[in-house]
Structure formats: C-alpha cells, structure tokens
Write a protein that binds this DNA or RNA. Structure first.
Lengths: 204, 204
DNA sequence: TTGATACGCTACTGCCAGTAGCATAACTCT
DNA sequence: AGAGTTATGCTACTGGCAGTAGCGTATCAA
C-alpha cells in the first residue's frame, strides 16, 4: 500500500498558498495575479505550488471555495434576511471591488478545460445560484413575492447585474448597494423592512 | 502643410482587418483571437495593423463598434418592440454565443488603460445602456411598466443577466431567449403582446 | 540504512503581444 | 525626372509569464 510512505506534505504550504492567493486577489485583483508573487508571498517555491494545483486557475478556484466558506446556505424563512446574508457571504470575502467570479470564468473558457469548468460550476457557482433560486421560490409560495416572478431568471438577473456593474462598468459595488440592487430587481423596497412574519404565511 | 504627402493608406487594409477581426471573433471567440491570425486572414502584415491600432484590444473595440452599426437606437413608442429591436441589433452581430463584451472589459482592466476604458464605455457600452434606460423610463411614464421599476437597475439586471448566462454559465443565449429574459425580468410576459397603446398614456 | 516522497532552487520551454529596422512601393511637390 | 515623405511587408527580436525539468536535500516509514 502507498499513501503513508515518503515525506508527508506540509499543511503549512497549503494554507500559506491559499491565504496568499486570497490576499493578493483582494489587494490587486485577478488581473494582476502572478504565480511567482503568490509563491513569494507564501514563502514557498512555485514548483511546490504546481505539485498541488495543476494550474493557476485551479488554485484560484480552490482559494475562492475556501474563502467563501459555507456561504450561509441556510434559510430563516424570510427572503430579505436570507438574501442579505447571501450577499454578506458572497461579497464580503472579496471586498467591494469586482469579484474574480467573472475573470475566472473567462480564463477557464480560454483553457477549454471542461473538467475545470465543471468543478467551477459545481463548487462556486451552482451552490449559491441554486440556493438563491430555492429562496425565491419559497418566498413566492409564502406570498412575499408575486407569482409572476421567475425564480431562476430573477436570480440570474441579480447576480449578473451585480457582476456587470463591478466588472464591465468598473463600478465597485458595496454590500449595501448589492442589497439595494436585489430589492429593486425583485420589486421589494427596503422601507418596509419590518414586515417580518406579517405577510401571508401560506403553504409549506 | 502635412497630411496629403507621401504614400496614402490603403482603405483595403482597414476593411480587411476589421472584417477579419469580426469574422474570427464570430468563429472562434475572443479567447482564441490571435493578432497573427488576423493578419493572415486579412492578407496583411502584423506591423501594418499596429500602425493603425495601438493594441489588439483597441482593434477589437473598433471592430465591435463597426459591427454594431447604429444599433437601432431609436424608439417606436412601445417598449416591447423597442427592446426586441435592441436585442436583435446587439446580439445579432456576434451570434448566440457569449459576446466579447465581457472579455474585452476584462482585458481592458488588465491593461489599466483608462483612456481605452473610456473609449469602450463611450462607444460600446453607454449608448445601448442609456438608450435602454430612456426606453424603460418612457414606458413607465406611459404606464406600460409600474412606477416602482428602477430603470437603470432594471437595465443593468437584464444586460448583466444575459452576459452572466453566456459567459459565466457558458449557456449560449439565443435571440429568442434574450427577448424572453427581459420580459421576465421586467414582469412583462409575451402572451399579452397586443396591449399596444391601451394602457394609461399619462404624462409627457 | 533504504526506499519513497516532498521541498526549494535554477534554468529552461513555449506562447504570444508588441517593437525595430530595413527594403520597397506609392504618392506629392518642385 | 527627381527629391522628399509616408505606407506596406518582411524577418527578427524583446519581454512577460505560465508551466516544466531536473537536481540536491529534507523528512517520513519499514
């Protein structure tokens, strides 16, 4: 049997590299991310990094996954609170500036690596997207949103709209603005933020 | 006086290069766009290209501008018809696949060229965006949309959502799907497409 | 001690945008 | 016709950066 033979890997390296990646991502953005810089910052060798992650993009995806943590994928039963929490968890780790979500997707596209694309979808994109769709669907059943709202379309419009502003328009989006944005798109204005538990309350 | 002295530039080159750029963009996408390929395709020299456009991105922006033409920036007075036309003009030239709008924005970001960024905004992004905002605002005044719709937010959500699906989710968006998308986001379903001129008709 | 695997280092390959510099072509002015 | 000027096309180069090769050394199990 293999697995325990030879010198074991140092945990320190994984942590340091992942931290360095997130740190540089935060400080300089994805466009300026250089593998040599990550190595220097993590006080390790570039070759050591490549022994763990097959490419820079793989590394970034792993770093994003770790930074996002569990992403508050739970529900309180109130749309406003749930989506606000999602915004906190999703935007927080990467600051107000344009998140790397988009840039990474584009780079994956460039490499034509279908497996990587699927990893990205499964671990970074889909969890948040599906959860948000579920939240919106539940809110419709509860009567917090009208029955004419298309959950998936609405969610894509919100996420896409935020990304668009941050990446294409280069307008840093703050957490507050993001929360206002989804309310505007879904037609829920914040002034009546104290209508907790007041509305219908129908169905499951 | 200068200007007319020396060998004049060949129009053929401008046209051929722009056409080749759009063609390759359409065929292989922005990620696979190579300046040498453009030169070959246009039957000219790479150096000649650089004498006209300072960088590949500048060239692509110019090519996009030309491909988009006048973009149907006019109004019939009916939101549905106007937005549909905008979709036709905006998606058409680049096919159903993810348009280069996003990738170009990211590359501009990478080069930190503020002047280029401003050119891109002024010539490619803003015209469509501002026009769409004006259309939605007018539709609200007309009563086609409720007064609680935020024009700019709604427009960014629609454009961003479409880009998000095409680029991040890698789901080619057809013209039909794009038209359905904006209707869903704005809460206007197509079945009642014949309510032309029926509603309110208030204000200016 | 041996065998296996990890680490760190230097040096390399490969891709590709953008540049240098030259020979030659095309046009204007005198 | 000739001189001055600018464009084209070519080959060859620079430079940034992701990813790789291979070696000496360190750290573990048996």
């Amino acid at each position: 049997m293999t697995g325990t033979r030879g010198r074991p890997r140092e945990r320190r390296v994984d942590d340091a590299v992942l931290d360095a990646t997130i740190g540089l991502l935060h400080a300089r953005g994805y466009a300026a991310l250089r593998i040599d810089d990550i190595a220097t910052e993590a006080k390790t060798a570039k070759t050591t990094i490549y022994r763990r992650w097959p490419s820079l993009v793989h590394l970034v995806v792993a770093a994003m996954e770790r930074a996002l943590g569990d992403r508050g994928l739970s529900s309180t039963g109130h749309l406003a609170a749930d989506l606000d929490r999602l915004v906190d968890a999703g935007l927080g780790p990467f600051g107000a500036g344009g998140s790397p979500v988009l840039a990474v997707a584009l780079d994956i596209d460039r490499q034509r690596d279908d497996e990587l694309r699927s990893i990205y979808r499964r671990r970074i994109i889909d969890p948040v997207r599906e959860h948000a769709v579920a939240l919106v669907t539940a809110a419709i059943h509860r009567g917090e949103l009208g029955p004419d709202v298309h959950p998936r379309t609405a969610v894509d419009a919100v996420i896409g709209g935020l990304i668009y502003r941050a990446a294409v328009l280069a307008e840093p989006v703050s957490v507050e603005e993001a929360k206002e944005f989804w309310r505007d798109v879904l037609g829920m204005r914040p002034p009546r933020a104290r209508d907790r538990g007041t509305t219908h309350d129908a169905e499951v």
